[in-house]
Structures are given as structure tokens and as C-alpha cells.
Design a protein around this nucleic acid. Sequence first.
DNA 1: CAAAATTAAACAAATGTTTGATTAATTATT
DNA 2: AATAATTAATCAAACATTTGTTTAATTTTG
Lengths: 206, 206
Amino acid sequence: MSTDKKDHIINTAIELFAENGFEGTSIRDLAAKADVNIAMVNYYFGSKDKLFEAMVVHKASYMREKLEEIASDKTKSEIEKMDAVIEAYVNRILTQHQYHRIIHQELMLKQREDVHNNIISLFSKNTLIVKQIIEQGMRKKAFKKVDPELTFASILGTINQVMLSKGMCNLLMNKDKNFNPYTDDTFKKRIITHLKQITHSLLLQH
Amino acid sequence: MSTDKKDHIINTAIELFAENGFEGTSIRDLAAKADVNIAMVNYYFGSKDKLFEAMVVHKASYMREKLEEIASDKTKSEIEKMDAVIEAYVNRILTQHQYHRIIHQELMLKQREDVHNNIISLFSKNTLIVKQIIEQGMRKKAFKKVDPELTFASILGTINQVMLSKGMCNLLMNKDKNFNPYTDDTFKKRIITHLKQITHSLLLQH
DNA sequence: CAAAATTAAACAAATGTTTGATTAATTATT
DNA sequence: AATAATTAATCAAACATTTGTTTAATTTTG
């Protein structure tokens, strides 16, 4: 069982699904791009749906660990933890923007119900961790009284708003079509700066 | 030429595209749900792609007018204009959440290129209007120095983050699957309150 | 040699679209 | 006002592709 080849198929699938969506990508497209026989996808994964599931599993759970690491860091204050959350998410979504886009599609459309529920469940746990950081800040009177869930939604939503569409990115950056926002450090810094500013002004007392 | 029937087909298409996506909706599904013959879609619109274009045109441009109305209202201060922008968007996305979801899909996937560019262009104009409100607030020293585009992205992104997935909504509201967040007034108020809080704390001097 | 991997070909089902015939509605002509 | 002529609307059926999947034979590998 060649794990290399399975991974290669999954990685090619991520590229295509991110670009054209799940229904918009045929197994023949995938096989052609990955340079394998059409039958190999079903041979390795059983079906196109199961390939999708394998793809999600393949990449998931990273953020969860990262967030827990930040939340349990006793050397950090609550606002420092929020800063770390912001940086972690921006980095994650920038480097894994294709995968992230696929997850977002599935979240919106709710086709493969199992996968959809899985994503909601993962997201639910992440929300809880960030919520607890914010609530602790509020208890310590370091933070103002805010809506914890929606505060997290604002952070994630801002990143998604600019990152999920390349056209949107380039509109905000006044760049042309060839510019790749996902590897541009200036853009990354701009988002992080804005998110910290918004979070600080929302949360911190004066 | 029965405009009623064309509209009926478009409205049914909005429901199905929002639920299952463009590729996930077959003309047969659509014809069945709209209770018309399969051939009628091509008879009226020419093709599935052109139906999509007609659908976008059918609903677009409303937000643009609303924003311009707000921006040019001389009885409002800048922060009052921002509040009005927030309320307009929340109301719009709540009532037109299916259409909004379709637009979002097209923004992400960039399949029908013409439609995609059209949406970017529409969005670009809306961004400019809001940007100018913020910049005027900054010039008058009523607003702090912020990133105008990303401030707008945060507002829209927050709404999208919670509105584009029913599962996400219900997660945030601790409701069960039968709950319909798009018609719930408590939810709407919660989002508006949070967005105003975030915008005020970010923009207003102390 | 046996198991695993790979292949080209075929499968049935689903897709968007077109056809050609039929009915309904509109317009023109008497 | 009645009839004929013309256009528009509707339909079931068929069209050619494309889809995901399977088969059965072949090659590679351990």
C-alpha cells in the first residue's frame, strides 16, 4: 500500500476541490492532474465521497491542538492569548488556504452530511476554547463585557472575508490578477495588525 | 412572454442553488421543484449558465442604492452612518440569505468568470462607499486611525461567518436543528448589538 | 508464485440541451 | 365578429456527453 500515492491523490484533490468545488471536479480531472489511472481513486478510497472524507481527516485537528496550547500557556495574559489566537489563525489560513476554502464550502452547502457535522463539531470545540479565554478576561475585569462567541466570529469572519476569494484580496490590496496574496507578507501583517487593533479596542478597558 | 413564470423559475433556482450549489442542482431538479417542463429553462434563459446570470442580475444593485442613500444623508454623523450600514447589511443578508449564499459561493469558486467579475465589481463599489464614510470620520478626527477596507471586511465577515451556515448559527445560539435563525429577531438584534459595539470601540475616540 | 497495483474498456445513470409535435394565445384578414 | 394565419408556450422523447463506478485482464512487487 503506497501511502505516497494516496497522499499525492489527496493533495491533488485539495487543489482541484479548492478551485472548482467538489461537484465541479470530476474523477477524470483529478486522475489527469495527479497523473494516475481513473480507477485508482476508487481503488484506494472506495468512492469519491470517501476520498473527500479522507481529505478532511488528513488535515484536520491541527488548529485544536494549537489553540489548547495557547489557552493553557500560563505565561500569557488573556490579551496576549487573543493575540496568539489571531496569529495562529492567520498563519493557518494563509498556509492552508486551499483546504480552508474546501471546509468553508462544505460548511455552507451541507452536502455530505457526515463531513458537515464533523466540521461543525471541530469548530464548536475551537469556539469553546476561545470563548473561555475571553470569559476569563472578563472575570478578571481585564476585558470589557462582550459577546464571546461573536467576538470569535468577528476574528474568523474577517480573515475569511478577505482570504476566501483571491479577487477580494487583490481588490483590498489594489493588486493585479497575477499577485498571489497567500504568500505576501505585507498582506499578512496588515490583517494581523487590523485584527489586533479591533480586538484590543473591543476587549481592553481604558 | 410570461414574466411570472420566468420569475418563478428564478426564485426556485435561488432556493436550490443556495441549498445544493450550482453544480449540485440539475435542471431536472429545478424543473420538478418549479413544476415546469425540463425544456422551459432553456426555452426562457437559453442555458443553465445564462439562468445563473439572470438570477444574479435579478437581485443585484439593491445594496448599492441603500449604501449611497446612507452615505449622502446629511442629518447623520459618521458613526450614525456606520450604524445604519450595519443595520442595512444585517437586514439584507437575513432576508436575502439564500441569494447571498449563492453570491458567496460564486465569489469563492470563480467558475462562471463573467459573473464572478461582476460580483467583485459590485462589491468593490460598496467597499468604496463605506471606505469614504470611514475616511471622512478620520479626517474630522471623530474616528481613530484605522484600516478602512479591513474595517468593512470585519463587519461583512462577521455577518457572513454566522449567517452562511445554519449549523453555525445554531451552534452560536445553542438551538436545535429545527430552529430557523433567519427569521429570529433575537439573533438579529444580537448580531447588530455586537457589530455596533465592535465598530464603536474601534472607531470612536475616548 | 501469490498478492497488490495498475490499466483500458465498459457500465449504467445522470447531465445539459435539442428536437419535433402539439396546444394556447395573439394578431391579421375578411 | 368570425375565421384564418402567425407566433408563443408547452410537452414528451431523444440527443450526445459526462458522470462515478466496476470489471476483467495485465503488470509489478514482495
